[in-house]
Amino acid sequence: MSKTGHTPPDHDTKLPRPLVARVEQWQRSGHYWRSGWHSHPWGQWSYATQGTLLVKTPDSCYFAFPKLAIWIPPHVKHLLQSTSPKGTIKSLYVANERLPEPAGNRFM
């Protein structure tokens, strides 16, 4: 686990199943949650059920307000960050071999 409380999956291996769900909650007094820069060989569909999710790439910045999701294509360097000291992020990791080509190579 990092100093931020984020425990990333092993980014150097395949997912254990074609679809993997993950929930992350944070509640810190005066601190905002942040994942740190990383990439992985699978796609990631993430949204905040509480708080707002910020996804940064080297070239762009995307916001997902509660109940709105962001698609992060495989191999894209990114970080996830909260914009409030309390919130919940839900993610669905999708194995690259299960993605249709057009959806697998761009942000949505």
Score class of each variant (00 low, 15 high):
Met1Phe: 08
Met1Asp: 07
Ser2Glu: 15
Ser2Gly: 07
Lys3Gln: 13
Lys3Tyr: 03
Lys3Ile: 02
Thr4Gly: 15
Gly5Gln: 06
His6Cys: 07
Thr7His: 13
Asp10Ala: 09
His11Arg: 11
Leu15Gly: 04
Leu15Met: 03
Leu15Trp: 02
Pro16Tyr: 04
Arg17Trp: 04
Pro18Met: 06
Pro18Ser: 11
Pro18Phe: 06
Leu19Arg: 10
Val20Tyr: 03
Val20Lys: 08
Val23Gly: 04
Val23Ser: 13
Val23Asp: 10
Arg28Thr: 07
Ser29Lys: 14
Gly30Val: 02
His31Cys: 08
His31Thr: 08
Tyr32Glu: 14
Tyr32Asp: 09
Trp33Leu: 03
Ser35Trp: 06
Trp37Val: 09
Trp37Tyr: 07
Ser39Asn: 09
Trp42Glu: 03
Gln44Cys: 10
Trp45Gly: 00
Ser46His: 01
Ser46Gln: 05
Tyr47His: 13
Thr52Asn: 11
Val55Gln: 08
Val55Leu: 14
Val55Ala: 05
Pro58Glu: 07
Pro58Val: 02
Asp59Met: 07
Ser60Arg: 15
Cys61Phe: 02
Phe63Asn: 05
Phe65Gly: 05
Pro66Ile: 00
Pro66Gly: 01
Pro66Ser: 01
Lys67Trp: 10
Leu68Met: 12
Leu68Trp: 03
Ala69Leu: 11
Ile70Ser: 03
Trp71Ile: 00
Trp71Cys: 00
Ile72Pro: 04
Ile72Asp: 03
Val76Arg: 08
Lys77Arg: 13
Thr83Cys: 09
Pro85Gly: 03
Gly87Tyr: 00
Gly87Trp: 02
Lys90Asn: 12
Leu92Lys: 01
Leu92Gln: 00
Tyr93Asn: 03
Tyr93Thr: 04
Asn96Arg: 07
Asn96Gly: 06
Glu97Asn: 13
Glu97Arg: 08
Glu97Asp: 12
Glu97Trp: 06
Arg98Ile: 03
Pro100Ile: 07
Glu101Ile: 11
Glu101Cys: 00
Asn105Gln: 13
Asn105Ala: 11
Phe107Asp: 02
Phe107His: 11
